[in-house]
Design a protein around this nucleic acid. Structure first.
Lengths: 208, 208, 208, 208
DNA sequence: AATGAATGAGGATTCATTCAT
DNA sequence: CATGAATGAATCCTCATTCAT
């Protein structure tokens, strides 16, 4: 007399992906605490209980969401930045472009915000994130900057002591879009361009 | 049918302040959703119900926390930045210093984070914040930058199209400290110094 | 630094009366459970704590309200109904009139409703009410009716087995007014008149 | 983070009915404000949360209780009273019998009381009840009485101006049983019989 | 005597999680 | 495998009651 369960038996990996996609959407919209498993399930087109066949609990689902999206990001960054022969300005330009295309222009944008929001409540995530992304990302960036410094192309060597500022515009972008998009856009190209213009001395010497 | 009280009154404004302090601490630590009123009360050294004598509900408490700290901030910023005769680099240096002293070095640091995290769930706060802080703060900064541009002191005019980047290091600092402080500090002076060094051309012409 | 307590020190009996009046109003409007002591205090023009100087708790206040209004009622009824020489119809007419004037036309009307509403939660009140009002009131009425019966003036002796019906119109009036007054009045005179007309045979014989 | 369920499903309509039954019992015993959802749940043999699967909140549960029992009542009354050819006395006798069997003899008796008690706090219920039950019920009764009047069978035409009195004994019965049953019964048959005897003139002429 | 700030028990409601179907 | 009905811990908020001033 009850509705029979759907037997759509999607490929398990596809199903897992669908859940993670739905989770990203719902977590992004509401934050971890306010996201209801049922909402995620509904959005994934499945029943509440099914989520638990793929993830043991809400927290695991959240962490999987993070981890699953993090690996690829890192790999991509490595490939881009670990190019010792390239011009540093060029390298960073490519990196910014990659960040724009691969992160800020996709749903992963929300993931960044989500992490910034919830790392506090999930110290393991902060740890994992720092170990796997921040630390090596910073090392990569630092490599590029030091290369530039050695070539005398760096305008201010202070950035070597706070290489995190390189990520600042991207972070700003994420937060701005999440909260203030409706009041006006942030010109991301201008922001990145500004960084590239001021970070490095011009290739030649074109004094004013 | 019920149980008796324990402690006795305190200056009402002091009490209100104590609650707001406790709220800042607890909200910062747990986020809005995970903060329990009882925790805030206990931290303020009072009973659960007392909180409700000062704030009608959890949301109001949260909003008061924000509003109470916002006014002073804005006033201070105005006083600092609205100085048309000062050298732009100097002005910005003072501003950065002020941000460091008045915000990043105080508990208000957590407030910034808190807002960045919860504005999503409280659109009115985003609106209020944008109208009262962001918009005018941006205008002030833009004023300074344009003054520099008119004097030919700006290295890249692109920053005029994305003046928000000026705030990026401060935002980065807040998020870094909240989440990654245990893994290593962010050198804020270096970050601000880097900005000042690269943003403006040197007063005279030194080197190349 | 706090507002000093009012020292209006009203005569204690007047103060007690004022509280009971306020209590009647508030209890009537909201029912026992939804009435707040603070509302009663405010309505009586005093502070919350003062109520507790006159009544040990909410329940006592409620019970006092009932008892205080009940005694006089009973005394009055006795005086009216215990008149063996009077014509039964006349007696009942006087009684109805008294009920109309002394109860239904005053705030005590609400008291009746209140009791009907809360006796359930306060069995002692039901007991007290039955012992002191119902039982003797019923006895009085029965006396009148039996006198009429002995004179052959009663149209149907069945009323002797359910003398409570004599009170039914008054009860109906109270409930009607409380709930449906805004949709239209109940014609109380018609209701009482109908009772008098049909209960007793005409003094003489005026056949149709 | 939480605890597991215990029991398993039941036909949804049966479950809903069980909750409403439990609610009637508990609301009747304690009144709306003093009834605890948990009590209702326990009485229905289910967990607290389950109640909320069937009714959005306490108030809705209460209103559903009323509405669910009201429709049938009205339909029944219509069928009984809207019989223009029947003898008025006979019609009313049938109506009284129906009230006795269908309401006063069932748990709906408590519902009547409940409404009389709580309409004050739920004006919408009073409105709904008046519109759907009282108004049309009164119209039906009035029809019967006017028919009687046209036949010259009415002892006192005053009842036409206060037809609500016809319901008075039923209301009295409900309140009496709820509060004073333990002190002695109300003879309902005598009460209704008294009404029938006095309301109408005898069919023929049998001695004064 | 009078006050009202302070208290915490009590109850409505939400939602992660389980498991019978 | 999939489902969603059922559960109860957890948390917000109210308000009777106390007692320092």
């Amino acid at each position: 007399m009850n509705t029979p369960p759907k037997r759509r038996t999607l490929a398990p990996e596809a199903r897992r992906k669908a859940i993670l996609d739905a989770a990203l959407a719902v977590f992004s919209e509401k934050g971890f605490a306010n996201a209801r498993i049922e909402d995620i399930a509904r959005r994934a087109g499945i029943g509440k209980g099914t989520v638990y066949l793929y993830f043991p609990d809400k927290e695991s689902l959240f962490k999987s969401l993070i981890s699953d999206a993090l690996g690829p990001l890192l790999t991509a960054a490595h490939a881009t930045l670990d190019e010792p022969d390239l011009d540093p300005r060029e390298t960073l330009a490519i990196f910014f472009e990659m960040v724009k295309t691969e992160v800020l222009g996709t749903e992963k944008r929300d993931l960044v915000l989500l992490m910034a929001m919830e790392m506090r409540n999930f110290p393991e995530i902060a740890e994992f994130y720092h170990e796997n992304i921040i630390r090596s990302g910073l090392a990569l960036i630092l490599g590029v900057l030091e290369r530039a410094e050695r070539r005398g192309a760096l305008r201010s060597s202070k950035v070597l002591k706070a290489p995190q500022v390189i990520f600042a515009p991207a972070l700003l972008s994420v937060i701005w879009d999440a909260n203030f998009a409706r009041f006006g856009d942030l010109d991301l190209d201008a922001a990145f361009g500004f960084y590239l213009d001021t970070l490095f001395k011009p290739a030649e010497g074109d004094t004013p």
